[in-house]
């Protein structure tokens, strides 16, 4: 199939899906009052801004925790490996909603974080919780990237007299960095989506505003269709970026080896 033809097919499929969605929307009982959502555009955009800020903070925390946990997992210390493994398993084995309840109702309350953060407590605690959540997934991504580096690279580095840590730092990690970008962007997308749960504890991110619109005007369709579209505004560019990076990377990987 030529590239042009492929693009045509893909375009047609997307159009068909959009048309199907339009049909579903037309089945809404009664008129959808889009104007109600439009009237609240400033609120929605402010909420989207907070969603982006909180998600960025969470990605930052997640990166730090994820890299540390991954390094623990590839270290030769059994204790460190077990710490990393426990963190990853506990976080990945429980739903984020439950973690959020624990963070907000138990941990933040026990640590009296309200005194420290005041009215921003819910947003800050939520971002931390989200970061810890994302960190566990990032840890696995980073560990996977480290382990994907050819065994020979390790051996070559060690045979040149580098220690385990030096080999990791100067040989293995630099090669991981590029390979990591696409899956990390995927984790960022997942963090953006999970941040919608923060609306439950009163964080005024975008889902919170959509729920308020629905609750006041009883306009469910406009509220949640616009909400979904606005999430896509954030996540789609990230996803497309990932795909482009993956394609470029695939090209580079195909090059003859050893550019070190």
């Amino acid at each position: 199939m030529t590239a042009q033809r492929e693009r045509l097919v893909r375009g047609a499929v997307v159009m068909a899906i959009i048309a199907a969605l339009a049909i579903v929307i037309s089945l809404a009982p009664g008129e959808i009052r889009w104007a109600l959502a439009w009237e609240r555009r400033d609120l929605f955009l402010t909420g989207l801004g907070l969603t982006v800020v909180i998600s960025s903070g969470a990605v930052g925390i997640g990166l730090i925790l994820g890299v540390i946990a991954a390094l623990f997992r590839v270290s030769r210390s059994v204790a460190l490996d077990q710490i990393g493994r426990t963190y990853v398993e506990v976080v990945r084995g429980t739903p984020f909603l439950v973690q959020l309840y624990l963070w907000y109702w138990c941990i933040a309350q026990a640590l009296q974080l309200h005194g420290l953060f005041g009215p921003r407590e819910a947003a800050i605690v939520g971002a931390i919780g989200l970061g810890v959540f994302g960190g566990a997934y990032i840890a696995e991504v980073v560990r996977g990237a480290i382990e994907s580096i050819d065994r020979g690279q390790w051996e070559a580095a060690r045979s040149l007299g580098l220690s385990h840590a030096q080999a990791l730092r100067h040989v293995v990690l630099p090669q991981c960095a590029r390979r990591l970008l696409p899956p990390l962007t995927g984790e960022a997308v997942s963090i953006v989506k999970e941040s919608s749960l923060l609306s439950i504890i009163g964080v005024a991110e975008i889902t919170y505003h959509a729920k308020n619109l629905q609750a006041r005007e009883y306009e469910t369709w406009a509220a949640f269709i616009c909400l979904a579209a606005l999430y896509l505004v954030v996540t789609l560019p990230l996803t497309l970026l990932t795909r482009r990076m993956e394609r470029r990377l695939a090209g580079e990987e195909a090059l003859p080896v050893a550019r070190l």
Partner: peptide, 10 residues
Amino acid sequence: PPFESVATDG
């Protein structure tokens, strides 16, 4: 509503 809700201006 009408006891409490968020108005259009937030």
